[in-house]
Simulated assay, not measured.
Amino acid sequence: MAAGSTRLSKQTRREQLLDTAMTIVRAQGADGLTLVTLADAAGVSRPVVYDHFGTRSGLLLALYRRLDERHRAASAQALREAAPSVGEIARVMSTAYFACATDMPEWNAVSAALKGTPEMEEIQHEMLDGYRDWMAAALLPHSNLTLEALRLRCTGALGAAEAIAGELNRGQATAAEAVTALTDLIVGSV
């Protein structure tokens, strides 16, 4: 163990390493994050980091999952606090979707670093399915559609959200315009 490190439980150490990894990505981008730079920044030996993540891809995937968990928790909380109308639910969903770009800049950096890896493709499908199901469950009480039809429309709305996010990232739309456009699409599809 490196000098100055403290013995932590495995889960506590993993959280500390992910916190440190997030700090590195914020400061240097995903290119600055390696298992070696993480070990050095966290003040632990390299085998500790390798034991937790195995590879750089493993580290990036763990960081991506953590960001997704935080995003989902914040989205679920916002939805619980929303007025029970389709317009308000759609607005909360839209705001939550675009919050990734504004509130979690690390999301794009980590996502870009993982592009093209088979693990990332699998995780993105898993996350898309989860987000689609979350949307459909929240919208179902406000729709005459079957759950299957609503899920398909939510998939379409998420495809549109991705395209709108591209416009937002290129400076072709403001966050408010993006939220309004996606909200209108969701309401119109219900």
Rank of each mutant, 00 (worst) to 15 (best):
M1T: 10
G4T: 10
S5E: 04
S5Y: 06
R14P: 04
E15D: 13
L18D: 00
D19Q: 14
T20E: 13
M22D: 00
T23G: 00
T23I: 05
R26P: 04
Q28I: 10
D31T: 13
D31K: 08
G32R: 05
G32P: 04
T34E: 04
L35F: 04
V36T: 14
L38N: 04
A39S: 12
D40Y: 01
D40H: 12
A41S: 14
A42Y: 07
G43K: 01
P47I: 13
P47E: 11
D51G: 05
H52Q: 15
F53H: 05
T55E: 07
R56G: 04
R56F: 03
L60D: 04
A62I: 06
L63F: 03
Y64G: 00
R65E: 09
R66L: 09
H71F: 15
R72S: 10
A73S: 07
A74M: 03
L79H: 10
L79R: 11
E81I: 01
A82L: 08
A82K: 09
A83D: 15
V86T: 11
A90N: 05
Y97F: 14
C100Y: 09
A101S: 12
D103Q: 13
M104V: 13
E106T: 08
W107T: 07
W107Q: 00
N108H: 13
T117W: 06
T117Q: 09
E126I: 01
M127F: 13
L128K: 02
R132A: 14
R132Q: 14
D133P: 02
M135I: 06
A136S: 08
A138Y: 01
L140R: 08
L140H: 13
P141S: 15
H142V: 02
S143W: 05
N144I: 06
N144T: 15
L147S: 12
E148Y: 00
L150R: 03
R151M: 09
L152G: 00
T155M: 02
G159R: 10
E162Q: 13
G166R: 03
E167C: 14
E167N: 10
L168M: 08
L168H: 06
G171A: 12
A173Q: 11
T174P: 03
T174W: 04
A175C: 03
A175L: 15
A176S: 14
E177C: 01
A178C: 10
A178T: 05
T180D: 13
D184E: 11
I186E: 01
G188F: 14
G188L: 11
S189Y: 06
V190N: 00
